[in-house]
């Protein structure tokens, strides 16, 4: 997890290898939906120790399923402005099929399993938990 902007280049560097000819990078960014009103930021909070454990497990599972692949992922916590990335997943593999599949696996499992919550903050100073 990180409180700073996600450095996608650093994640790509973590999984790059001359034997991996395909790299897939996924960024999930804070988006304004039509019924949100004037959202100025989304505050992410997390059960941080468990996020680390779950993320580690998901990455280990992906490496086991796609033995030629490596993956790296980060989730940002704290205030994340509209348009900025809240999560990033990078997968590199010898060929594109495995790279896409591994990246998809990691983001889907992260959405399903990571104990992370978001609170929308509005221009007027009010806020609400967003549960979806």
């Amino acid at each position: 997890m990180t409180r700073d902007p996600i450095d996608i280049g650093a994640l790509i560097a973590n999984v790059s290898d001359a034997g991996r000819g395909a790299t897939v990078a996924f960024l999930g960014s804070v988006r304004r939906s039509s019924d949100d009103g004037p959202v100025v930021a989304i505050e992410y909070s997390a059960y941080e120790e468990m996020v680390e454990a779950e993320f580690g497990g998901i990455v280990t599972e992906a490496r086991a399923r796609w033995p030629g692949a490596d993956v790296a992922a980060r989730h940002r916590v704290g205030d994340v402005p509209l348009g900025a990335a809240s999560i990033a997943v990078v997968a590199a593999a010898p060929h594109r099929g495995e790279a896409f599949e591994a990246a998809r696996y990691v983001i889907e499992e992260a959405k399903r399993r990571l104990p992370v919550w978001k609170r929308e903050r509005f221009a007027g100073g009010t806020a609400r938990w967003r549960e979806e």
Binding site: Y47, P115, V116, E132
Partner: peptide, 10 residues
């Protein structure tokens, strides 16, 4: 024991 609201990460 942690009580977890509906998850909303990503």
């Amino acid at each position: 024991l942690a009580l977890l609201p509906p998850l909303a990460g990503g």
